[in-house]
């Protein structure tokens, strides 16, 4: 039954225009930004006062492998917004549409249903990270061929890219879990998205800014806020040359993100199990 429900949720997720519109928009935005950067570079090249080293540095930024890193960073940032909107609407709208009633009323166990719903977001979230990567790869590849005549695959650390993709998806877990929890609690897409955006983009940053200067345990609390932790972790992952899997920061971030994900999923499941689904 559980895998059947996941399959059904996938069917709904990938049929939803919201997901595809979101992916198209971030792809378009990324492609346009690459075009603008290349246009700027082309303009720079016509200016004799610009040092060749500067031009070379800029070329490195818009070609492979740097283009992939840029795309992944963009994917992480835009992914937060897309995750909140997608998870919020796909979960909360099941209530006024009563599709959750339909499945429960036809014998789908509540815990299996809520778990399937939550886990089914994994593939769309992976798409939200992969699509910018592919767009960046195509644009960066085209720029590389244009400026250097060809692509040297040995310059791309595919292993690091792979780990960063997984890490980026993982970093979006707290956003997905908290948004999911709010959707089950409020049963309203508007309230869920509004509260999630307000919390992650405004409230949490304000709280962190207040706590950090206080030092001691208050600073630690600031460090372990869900969005702050996820953001810090992915930034470290993307910026570091070598991964230190044994560092305290890395370990605590991995555990902390998992705890937030699991905790808010369990809260959602507890609420859903007892929820009156009405007539």
């Amino acid at each position: 039954m559980f895998w059947t429900l996941i399959s059904m949720e996938h069917g709904k997720n990938f049929r939803r225009l919201t997901l595809w519109i979101g992916l198209i928009l971030i792809s378009a935005f990324l492609a346009v930004s690459f075009i603008v950067e290349n246009a700027y570079l082309a303009d720079l090249q016509t200016q004799p006062q610009v040092h060749p080293d500067t031009i070379e540095e800029y070329k490195q930024l818009v070609t492979l492998p740097a283009a992939l890193s840029t795309s992944l960073s963009f994917g992480a940032s835009s992914g937060v917004l897309l995750v909140i909107i997608f998870v919020g609407t796909m979960t909360a709208q099941e209530y006024p549409w009563r599709t959750v009633n339909l499945l429960v009323g036809h014998g789908a166990p509540r815990f299996s249903l809520i778990a399937a719903k939550f886990l089914s977001f994994l593939l769309p979230v992976l798409g939200m990270v992969l699509v910018p990567l592919i767009v960046g790869g195509v644009c960066g590849g085209a720029a590389t061929i244009h400026y250097y005549g060809g692509i040297d695959p040995t310059r791309v650390d595919f292993g690091r890219i792979g780990i960063t993709v997984i890490g980026t998806v993982y970093s979006l877990l707290p956003y997905a879990a908290i948004t999911f929890f709010l959707a089950v609690l409020t049963r309203s897409a508007a309230a869920t998205i509004g509260i999630s955006l307000g919390y992650f983009f405004i409230l949490e940053n304000l709280v962190a800014l207040i706590l950090w200067p206080l030092g001691g345990v208050w600073e630690k609390i600031g460090d372990y806020l869900p969005g702050v932790m996820a953001y810090t972790w992915i930034s470290t992952l993307q910026a570091s040359q070598k991964f230190n899997f044994h560092s305290a920061e890395f370990t605590s971030a991995v555990i902390g993100i998992a705890v937030y994900g699991l905790l808010f999923f369990l809260f959602s499941a507890l609420i859903f199990r007892a929820q009156d689904l009405g007539g």
Binding site: V104, G105, H106, G107, P109, R110, F111, R273, A274
Partner: peptide
């Protein structure tokens, strides 16, 4: 609420 398996034989 936690055990609704018999509903698999029901259409509603």
């Amino acid at each position: 609420l936690g055990g609704n398996f018999p509903l698999r034989r029901v259409g509603s």
